[in-house]
Amino acid sequence: MGELTASNMFESETICADHKDLIHDVAYDFYGERMATCSSDQYVKVWDSDGRGGWRLSASWKAHHGSVWKVTWAHPEFGQVIATCSFDRTAAIWEEVGDAASSGSEKGLHTWLKRSNLVDSRTSVTDVKFGPKHLGLLLVTCSADGIIRIYEAPDVMNLAQWTLQHEIPTKVSISCLSWNPSLSRVGNPPMLAVGSDEPNTSNAVANVPSDKGTACNGKVFIYEYSETSRRWTRTECLSSVQEPVNDIAFAPNLGRSFHLLAVATKDVRIIKLEPLA
């Protein structure tokens, strides 16, 4: 990209999302044709592309009783489904029903129904992500008390039923997580990366002994699912990341022999994860 930077070369346009408070997350759907936003005003809004570069509000509803931190789309194979998580200690699964309910001022707005409310967390749920499609309909949440929860909808047609498959305690506050989207099951077991926003001041807390028994004060942990033991285990702690982590994301795997993980702290790092042969 050289000397080009977004600020001096390109104009961005502003969409007045009309959220009453800070917007915490914005997510495109699979096709890039819809957007969902969530905010501290406890509302979630869905925006549809008009096909000409414009965006139109298609739904807006109060989704939680606290700040909504994250919103994420399920693969369209499972329908028009989003998941949200909130300071109110819950995560919720929403499905769009019917077509434009045309009644007065609400004309053109779609209805989203809460299909399920995941209430297992005792603290703020800080992130929520659907699993890669090839693993079925999976959902992972993480919370400020450091517990990662993996839910599965055994029947993809029934979004009301989610079973808590795994509960992984990490002992540090988790702020964000990302699924490894890699398709290959061989040599690439299901993998999650989680980031902690634990401040560095409390060294005692941050020194979490990893499963290998060695202390690691990194802020990014890799968990992998072992088919044989049917457990998620921590396989890696990236000790190079020492700052509190705000966000984390795997790159799509385009046939690479390694994984790329982006970690946002004070700055952004791209970390290459090479599977052990």
Binding site: S12, E13, I23, E33, G53
Partner: peptide
């Protein structure tokens, strides 16, 4: 993702309840 007619941009959260879209 580059799919639809209007999609494929880069969006980020801006100040005061707005979205910035490229």
């Amino acid at each position: 993702c580059g799919g639809g007619g209007g999609g494929g941009g880069l969006v980020w959260t801006g100040a005061g309840g707005t979205l910035r879209l490229m």
